[in-house]
Design a protein around this nucleic acid. Sequence first.
RNA 1: GACUCAGUAGCUCAGUUGGUAGAGCAUCUCCCUUUUAAGGAGAGGGUCCAGGGUUCGAGCCCCUGCUGAGUCACCA
Length: 573
Amino acid sequence: MSQSLSEQEIQRRESLQALRQMGIDPYPAARYEASHFSTDILSGFEADAEATEWESVKISGRIMTKRIMGKASFIDVMDSKGRIQVYLNRDVLCPGEEKELYNSVFKKHLDIGDFIGITGKVFRTKMGEVTLEADSLTVLSKSLKPLPIVKKDEEGNVYDAFTDPEQRYRMRYVDLVVNDKVKDTFITRTRIINAMREFFNRYDYLEVETPILQPIPGGAAARPFITHHNALNIPLYLRIANELYLKRLIVGGFEGVYEFAKDFRNEGMDRTHNPEFTVMEIYVAYKDYFWMMDFTEQMLQHVVKTIKGGDSKVSLGGVELNFEAPFARVSMRQAILDHTGFDIDGKSEAELRAACADMGIETEPSMGKGKLIDEIFGEKCEPNYIQPTFITDYPVEMSPLCKKHRDNPEYTERFELMINGKEVANAYSELNDPIDQRERFEAQLQLSEKGDDEAMFIDQDFLRALEYGMPPTSGMGIGIDRLTMMLTDNASIQEVLFFPQMKPEKTVKKVELNDNEKLLFERLKAEGRMPLNDLKEQLGLSNKQWDKSLKGLNKLGLSKVEKTDEGLFIELL
RNA sequence: GACUCAGUAGCUCAGUUGGUAGAGCAUCUCCCUUUUAAGGAGAGGGUCCAGGGUUCGAGCCCCUGCUGAGUCACCA
C-alpha cells in the first residue's frame, strides 16, 4: 500500500535510520526485565525512602512526555501499571567524554511513544515528585506514528484529549495508551467475569463450552447470522443463545453448568447493541426461579463488592445503585397495576389492545397478548426500575421456554432483573415438559406465520432430549456487556467492547500519476479490457515510456495484465 | 429507517457578510543541569470529508454522497 507520510512520520523514520547508523538496534530481540512496575516504585518509595532497594531500579515502558532543559531532561515513562517520571542528567547518563547517548540518541532520536528501558536510582525532586534518575537507557522499540498528546494540569483538567469516538474505537490500541480510564474499564470487565466465575465455582458448577455454529439457532427470539459449511454442504447459524445446549447437558446429568458465551444477532447496532455480544448463562438442576432470584442477587452483590473493594454501591450517570441483597421483587401484573392502574389479569387480546390504545401505545395486528403486555410494560413501567429489581411472572405467550406458573397458567415462572430501567438478566423455572414444550414451539410457528420474524424455530433434537427427561431446573442469563456498562459507568456498549463492530473503514486511494501514466489510465478507463498491443499502438509511447508507465500502474494496483490463449490483455481493477 | 448536529494541521479546536487558512499542543532549529499543561526565541506543516452547482471569487451558500455522534423508531 502506498501512502504519503506526514512530516512527523518521515522525521521518525529518519531517526530510525540514524539510530541504526549509530549501531543501535531500534527493535532489539533481547528480553528486558524490569525490576519494578512504576506503581511499585511510587508506593514503595513513599513508604520506605531509606531502603537500599531504591538504589538500583530497572523499568521499561513508553515515553509519554519529554521536557528537555539543555543538559538535563524529565520524561514520563508509562508501563502497564502506570507512569513514573524519569530524570535524565547528561553527565549521570554519560559519565565519560562521550555524550552521544544523551545529546543525540535521547534528545534527537527518541520520541513520545518509543519504548525504552531505564536503570537508575529513585529520588525525590525539589518539587516533591518521586523520580527515577537514569544511569542507563536502552532503546526497546521505536514508534513511527505520533501518539495524540493528552495533557493534564494540576487540577486534573485534561487538555487535547483524544476523544473522537470513531478514531478511538477503530484504533483502540491508541485509545488504551492515551486514555487511562479506558484501560480501567476493561480491567474491571475482566474482574467482573472473574468474580462471577469464582462465585459459580464455589458451588461446583461446571464451566462448559457449547457450539457456536448451530444447525438450528434456538433459545431466543432474534434474527441469526447464517453461514455455510462446505464439507457438509449445509447452512449453519451463529448462535443467538446457548440455552438449548446447556439444558441438554442438564438432561445428561450435570448438577449445574454455565458458559460465558459470545452470541450473535443479525440486527441493528446502537449504543446498547453490538452484533456480537457476551452472555453468561447458567442452569442448575432441582432448582426453581425463586432459588435463582436469591442466587442471582447474591452473585451480583459478590461481583460488585469484589470490584468495589467491599462496597455494594455503584454510581451510574450520577445515580447511585445499591446492589445490597435482597433486591425488590415485583410481579409484572403488579408493576403494570402500579404504573398504569390497569390490571392485565384475565384480559383478552382485544381488551389488552384497547388498553394500549387508551394509554397511547401503538400496536400492530401481529402482536399477540404477550407482546401487547410487553409493550405496556416496556413503555410505562420499565424505565421506573432504577435500583436492581426483579420483575416476575411474565405472560405465557412471551416465554416459550419457561414453565407455566404453579399458581396461574396464564403466567410463567420467569423473572427479569431490571437495573437503571434496563433489563440485565433473564431467568426461568425451565420448561421440562416435552409435550408442553412442543406445543409452545408450535405456537411460535404460528406467530412466525403471522409475521413475527423473530419467532423461534423448532429444535427437534432439543425436544427429543426433553423426552428423555430433564430434572426441574432453573436457568439464568445475564448480559455481560450491559452489566459492565452499568458497573463502569459507561453509557455505550462500544465503551466496554475492545473492538466494537464498525462500518468498514473507507480507504481513499491517494496516488500521484505522471503524465504518461495518466494517459494510459484514461485510455484504459474509456476502453475497458483490451489487448495489450492495441493499447500500446494507440498511445504511441516509446518502448521505455510504455514499459515504465504500465509497470507504474500495475504497481499501484490500478491495472492488471492477463495472459490468455488469445494473447496478452490489460484491464483496470 | 427518520430527524438534528458535526467533519479544517499529527491531536484539540477557532474561522466575521462569500474576499490570500488560524491558535494551543505536537514536530524542526537555537538557548536552558530538579522540570511537570516546564520556559524563551524562531521555523515548517493543509485534498478545509468527497463530488457537483451558484458566484468574478466558496472552508463558509445550494444539491448529492460518505463517515461519525445524538434523539427517536425497530430490536433483547
